[in-house]
């Protein structure tokens, strides 16, 4: 019963959103610019927000995948399973996953913007009257999100690494490959789909987050797309927040609001779906291997 109640609520929410928002969806809306008037129902588009969201999650992937994957490889392939150090890392990863997103926002502001950005400014642009790095920017938002999604990538990668039969590694080692060669040439390629899943899950989680980017990069309005890493950006999820709380006339701009929500949902659902499909395929393959 409860299961169906939950599904019914889910259907109700999605139904409401898609019924009201689906009609307003058009190529013009998705690819249209918002530089004329972002609150004008007839002409406003969400392309700058789509672009901003895409830019921040792609950048985030570039940061999080290398770090996450190497950590996972270290944990599964190299680290002694029961040493206190490994346990501490594992515990830290687990806890990182449970830290509230707003705390990451605070961390991003305090560490990346004030500490790192501020220091960069002191050394690189001592004469600049205004900060270049020490302010909210695309790169800091992406880095903050990367820290937040690190556990997702680590856990997914670890899972796929562990699923690879030990025999494969032993065969490679027996043929004279070094440990590093084995990891890079034999284990890693097998684990790629898992890593990809982790990446996609991280992206879908990050795409919908607002709290971590509130102070680290999102802009209420920008006339042009972000041009560099130190620019701020407009963002789909943040735009949902802006439209539902700060638009000049909430009733009138409601079609834009619903449209934006639909675009955001389609994006995150599509990503989730891809991740689920890949994962299902990986599991099937593994079952066959085992």
């Amino acid at each position: 019963m409860a299961t169906f109640l939950i599904l019914a609520i889910l259907a109700l929410i999605l139904g409401n959103i898609f019924l009201q928002g689906g009609t307003g969806l058009s190529p013009r809306f998705i690819f249209g610019n918002a530089d004329k008037d972002m609150f004008d129902v007839a002409s406003a588009g969400v392309w700058p927000m789509v672009f901003g969201t895409a830019a921040r999650v792609i950048l985030m992937t570039l940061f999080v995948i290398p770090v996450g994957v190497t950590t996972a490889i270290y944990l599964t392939e190299y680290a002694p399973a029961l040493s206190p150090f490994t346990r501490i890392i594992r515990g830290a990863v687990n806890n990182l996953a449970g830290v509230p997103s707003i705390v990451f926002g605070l961390f991003g502001l305090g560490f990346f913007i004030s500490a790192v950005g501020g220091t960069l400014d002191v050394f690189l642009y001592p004469d600049s009257p205004k900060p270049v790095w020490g302010k909210a920017a695309l790169i800091w938002a992406s880095l903050t999100l990367a820290v937040m999604t690190l556990p997702v990538v680590i856990v997914a990668t670890e899972e796929s690494l562990r699923a690879i039969p030990l025999g494969l590694r032993e065969a490679s080692l027996a043929l004279g490959a070094t440990k590093l060669q084995t990891v890079l040439r034999v284990v890693l390629p097998q684990a790629l789909p898992g890593i990809l899943t982790g990446g996609i899950l991280a992206v879908s989680r990050a795409a919908g987050e607002v709290a971590p980017i509130l102070f680290t990069g999102a802009a209420y309005y920008m006339a042009s797309l972000p041009q560099s890493l130190t620019d701020q950006f407009m963002d789909l999820a943040y735009h949902v927040f802006v439209l539902s709380t700060q638009s000049p006339d909430i009733e009138k701009t409601r079609p834009i609001l619903y449209g934006t929500v639909v675009v955001l949902l389609l994006l995150t659902f599509a990503l989730n779906l891809v991740a689920i499909l890949i994962r299902a395929r990986v599991r099937r393959n593994l079952r066959r291997l085992a």
Partner: peptide, 24 residues
């Protein structure tokens, strides 16, 4: 079917749930 269905709920960004709570 049911499991991914319920887990789909976690795919809804919290800002969308907030919007839904506020507006509807």
């Amino acid at each position: 079917w049911l499991k991914p269905g319920i887990e789909l709920l976690s795919g809804i960004p919290s800002v969308v749930l907030g919007f839904f709570a506020l507006i509807v």
